[in-house]
Design a protein around this nucleic acid. Structure first.
Length: 156
DNA sequence: GCCAACGTTGGC
DNA sequence: GCCAACGTTGGC
């Protein structure tokens, strides 16, 4: 079992949106970075833990706990000419981008990025490295446990 | 809105 | 295969 941090723009898909979805499950679509795609394709497994992160807004941070509930499959938006995520080079025969299904598991306290930066145990997190922009990044079990505790409301 | 950092594209 | 130009991400 592995652990991941997955970024979403809350204007597009927020943690609350996922909680409200049928089964609290959504398809994670729109990843257009090969490194992030390869994590989904090669390293993720059903049951992996996910820190659901909100980026781009006024207050970036971890919005909730989720988990991976499907294997990889082709991201439908790559074939949709009307989609912002359309990829003209992708065809159903040779898809380029993939999705996985993510289920919201536990809401709690929103933990801002600025707070994560104050936690010494998280210094090595991929998210916190200078210049890091990966939309999906691996998290160690220790980092995951630390952040889950923060989400559950224990002080930093 | 700014800008640092990174990824992708395309000419050569 | 190199690398400059361009586009995007995302925090501030």
């Amino acid at each position: 079992m592995r652990y991941w941090l997955m970024k979403s723009e809350p204007d597009e898909v927020s943690f609350d949106d996922v909680l409200a979805a049928p089964g609290a499950t959504v398809a994670w679509f729109g990843v257009r970075n090969y490194q992030a795609r390869n994590f989904m394709r090669d390293a993720m497994a059903v049951g992996d833990g996910v820190l659901f992160y909100h980026s781009g807004g006024k207050l970036p941070g971890v919005a909730g706990i989720a988990e991976i509930v499907s294997g990889p499959y082709p991201d439908a938006s790559q074939f949709d000419a009307a989609s912002h995520y359309h990829d003209p080079k992708a065809t159903p025969e040779t898809p380029r981008w993939i999705s996985v299904d993510v289920k919201a598991v536990e809401a709690g306290r929103f933990v801002p990025l600025a707070e994560l930066r104050t936690v010494a145990a998280l210094d090595d997190m991929v998210l916190l490295q200078k210049g890091s922009r990966l939309s999906i990044s691996p998290v160690t079990k220790a980092q995951y446990t630390t952040i889950v505790a923060l989400v559950r409301g224990k002080g930093a």
